[in-house]
Design a protein around this nucleic acid. Structure first.
Length: 509
RNA sequence: CGGGGCGUAGCGCAGCCCGGUUAGCGCGUCUGCUUUGGGAGCAGAAGGUCGCCGGUUCGAAUCCGGCCGCCCCGACCA
């Protein structure tokens, strides 16, 4: 159908030039590269409070698109949104033994309700008179307040299941923070469901892991491996934690989403029972599942390059930017007419398109700026293009540029966005394949870990001791036990005992 | 909590060792003209209680003491 299907590359990559926001190359300092990209792409800023971040419009736009896609998937699987409070009575957290142990060390505690001016030094201080009768904690996660509530909502099997999600912020007082990857306050969604049977709850937890997998792969272009967490990596209070694990460009693993089968632990802690069809009183079965703004960190570290952010088209707040080029008013009128016509055409095709007609910045500046910000496709239209009825297309992922006719441009762009989406996935998938190694002995394990990192598949005897020893000696942890394991061969790397599972080891974020 | 680094203009830094004109440079900002197909050029301008408190001194960004904050690397974690 498309008459002009051949892209002609008219120019190679431009030589490096001095950039306003220089980005440290990845192979020089990966950690600094990440911070430079976040800054150059205007995703986030540091806040006056250590460990917190200001999410800028570019970053928040990404999050909004993630929310839209996920929210639709949650609704399609029967969930409803609700909102539970930020403040939780301190006593609630103590009710589930493992849960309190897991979170007690990182809770922000509210002890007073007002400020007053000190008589001694005139400084503002918490008013001693206003000390709360019971401390409040800022939610690190909402299981406790939700199960307190569910215990009031649920009496009968007729009240089940409850399938609720909430979009919220949570606070975990972290020692060491990194923008998006680990911040003291972060945005997330947390699903909390209540079920009549164990089977149904397990099925729910597995279903939501599938939802996360689809989201990661189809929207983020992020290939992930599904599996189960080992007991040591399990969520505090869960019976089983399922996860999706992704591999970043530096060879480190990142947990991209978790889904927990909570058994009856929280039901017991909050006395949440129901009468079943046999007229027996039974504890409710639970799940919880979440993904956070950390996914933005995953997205950055999976696709971006030394020129800045690379966004997958399906999540990009701006998918196409049009940069007009002109030297005088005559050219301006002609160029903008064409540029705006193309903008409208793309708009009717539901392409998120932006025409940047600002005259305060020059075209070259805009090229660099949108590349740093990761906009998937750039169209440049100048006097030559008006005359020849062409446009210049540049794709962010490969840097490829081509001159194409204006006729049929919307179709071409829509197809190109899909192509870029797929190409990003393929590239990330190949990278993961190339950096996944199967080993059978400990020396080989250490060698691979040291030389190239990545995912290392190895036999494990299922004991905490082996896992702990390997972590102690190499810093690598078991990221997950992949699903569907039949015959497991080989022996544990350190104990030499017969393996019970083949697991994925990696250094992790 | 350990190790390292840093606080001087909106941002990035120099000056500090060896105290002494009016605290300087780059980027950015503002004005004007020329420019505009890969981060423009020239000319001019604005912008600072040198992190905070105290001490030494005729005189402190600089020396001394204390405090505070932030970033990076580790231990802990999504």
């Amino acid at each position: 159908m498309t008459r002009y299907s051949t892209f002609c590359c008219i120019q190679k990559r431009p030589p490096p030039y001095i950039m306003a926001d220089a980005i440290t190359p990845r192979d020089e300092d990966y950690s600094q590269w990440y911070l430079d990209v976040v800054k150059a792409a205007k995703l986030a800023d540091y806040s006056p409070v250590r460990g917190c971040m200001i999410i800028r419009p570019n970053g928040y736009g990404l999050w909004e698109n993630m929310q839209d896609a996920l929210d639709k998937m949650f609704k399609d699987t029967g969930h409803e949104n609700a909102y539970f409070p930020l403040f939780i009575p301190q006593s609630f957290l103590a009710k589930e033994a493992e849960h309190v142990e897991g979170f007690a060390k990182e809770c922000a505690v509210v002890t007073h309700s007002r400020l007053t001016v000190s008589e001694e030094d005139g400084e503002l201080m918490a008013d001693p008179e206003s000390e709360l009768e019971e401390n409040l904690i800022v939610r690190p996660t909402s299981e406790t307040i939700i199960w307190d509530t569910y215990s009031k909502w649920i009496q009968s099997w007729r009240d089940l299941p409850i399938l609720i999600n909430q979009w919220a912020n949570v606070v975990r007082w972290e020692m060491r923070t990194r923008l998006f990857l680990r911040t003291m306050e972060f945005l997330w969604q947390e699903g909390h469901t209540a079920h009549a049977t164990r089977e149904e709850a397990v099925e729910e937890a597995r279903q939501m892991l599938e939802v996360y997998t689809s989201f990661a792969e189809d929207f983020m272009a992020l290939p992930v491996i599904q599996g189960t967490k080992t007991p040591s990596e399990r969520f505090a209070g869960a019976v089983e934690t399922y996860c999706i694990e992704a591999l970043m460009q530096d060879g480190k693993a990142l947990q991209a989403g978790t889904s927990h089968f909570l058994g009856q632990n929280f039901a017991k802690a909050f006395d949440c029972t129901f009468q079943n069809k046999n007229n027996e009183l039974e504890y409710v079965w639970a799940t919880s599942w979440g993904v956070s703004t950390r996914l933005i960190g995953a997205l950055i570290m999976t696709h971006s390059d030394d020129k800045g952010l690379v966004m997958p088209p399906r999540l990009a707040p701006t998918q196409v930017v049009i940069v007009p080029i002109f030297r005088n008013d005559d050219e301006k009128v002609q160029v903008l007419e064409v540029a705006d016509r193309i903008r409208r055409e793309l708009d009717t095709r539901d392409v998120a398109v932006k025409l940047d007609a600002r005259e305060s910045q020059r075209p070259g500046w805009k090229f660099a700026e949108y590349e740093a910000q990761g906009v998937p496709v750039r169209l440049a239209i100048g006097p030559r293009d008006v005359k020849n009825e062409n446009a210049e297309i540049a794709r962010r992922d490969t840097g490829e540029k081509s001159i194409v006719p204006q006729a049929g441009l919307p179709d071409r762009i829509v197809a190109l966005l899909d192509e870029i989406q797929q190409s990003l996935y393929d590239q990330a998938f190949s990278f993961r394949e190339e950096h996944t190694t199967e080993v059978s002995d400990y020396d080989e394990f250490k060698e691979v870990l040291k030389e190239e990192g990545g995912f290392i598949i190895a036999p494990w005897d299922g004991t905490d001791e082996s896992e702990a020893q390997i972590k102690e000696e190499t810093k690598a942890t078991i990221r997950c036990i992949p699903f569907d394991q039949d015959d497991v061969e080989g022996t544990d790397l350190v104990s030499g005992k017969p393996a019970t599972h083949r697991v994925i080891f990696a250094k992790a974020y």
